[in-house]
C-alpha cells in the first residue's frame, strides 16, 4: 500500500517516549488512514512507549477517533441546541431511514457515514448538516431527501467512471 510509505513522516514529527504527543499522533494517523487500524495503534504505543491498552483507552475516549473505515461521504448532523429546537432530530431520523444505517455507522457500499456532532457552530442556518465539510442549512425533510438524491447520483456516477 502506498499509504504505508508515508508513515515515517508522521512518527518522525514527534519525539519518542513523549506520551503528551499521543493524541496528536493518533490524529495524524487517522488523517492518513481515515481511521485507526489496530496495527498502527500498536506502532503508536511503541513510539511513545506506553502500553497499547492506554493508547486504545485514550482513542476510545474521544469522539473523533474511528476504528473502522469511513464512507466516502461523511454526513455530520448537528445536534446543537439551536438545531434541536429547529427539528434536527427529524433530520437525523430521515437520514437514517433513507440510508438504512444508524448514526455512527457506514453504509455497506462505503459511500455514506452518518455522524452526529454536538454543534458545528452554524446555528444561524439551523438545522444544519455537513457533508464532507460542505454545509447544508435550513433543511426540511423534503429538501434533505432531494439533497441526498443528488449525492447518491453523484456516487453512482463516480462508480461508473471508476
Amino acid at each position: 500500500m502506498t499509504k504505508q510509505q508515508h508513515m515515517p513522516e508522521i512518527y518522525g514529527k514527534y519525539p519518542k517516549k513523549d506520551a503528551s504527543c499521543l493524541i496528536d499522533l493518533l490524529q495524524d494517523v487517522q488523517e492518513q488512514f481515515g481511521y485507526l487500524p489496530d496495527s498502527e495503534m500498536q506502532q503508536v504505543a511503541k513510539h511513545v512507549d506506553i502500553p497499547v491498552s492506554r493508547v486504545y483507552g485514550v482513542a476510545t475516549f474521544y469522539n473523533q477517533f474511528r476504528f473502522q473505515p469511513l464512507g466516502k461521504y461523511v454526513i455530520k448532523v448537528c445536534r446543537g441546541t439551536a438545531c434541536h429546537v429547529q427539528g434536527s432530530l427529524g433530520i437525523l431520523t430521515t437520514l437514517e431511514n433513507e440510508l438504512g444505517i444508524k448514526a455512527g455507522q457506514t453504509t455497506k457500499d462505503l459511500m455514506f457515514t452518518i455522524e452526529t456532532v454536538a454543534c458545528i457552530g452554524a446555528c444561524s442556518i439551523a438545522p444544519v448538516i455537513a457533508i464532507n465539510d460542505e454545509f447544508h442549512g435550513g433543511l426540511t425533510t423534503k429538501s434533505l431527501q432531494k439533497l441526498l438524491r443528488g449525492y447518491q447520483k453523484r456516487s453512482a456516477k463516480d462508480e461508473v467512471t471508476a
Partner: peptide, 10 residues
C-alpha cells in the same frame, strides 16, 4: 466578505 464559519455555511 464575511467569511467566518456562518458566512461560509451560507
Amino acid at each position: 466578505v464575511g467569511m467566518g464559519t456562518c458566512g461560509l455555511a451560507n
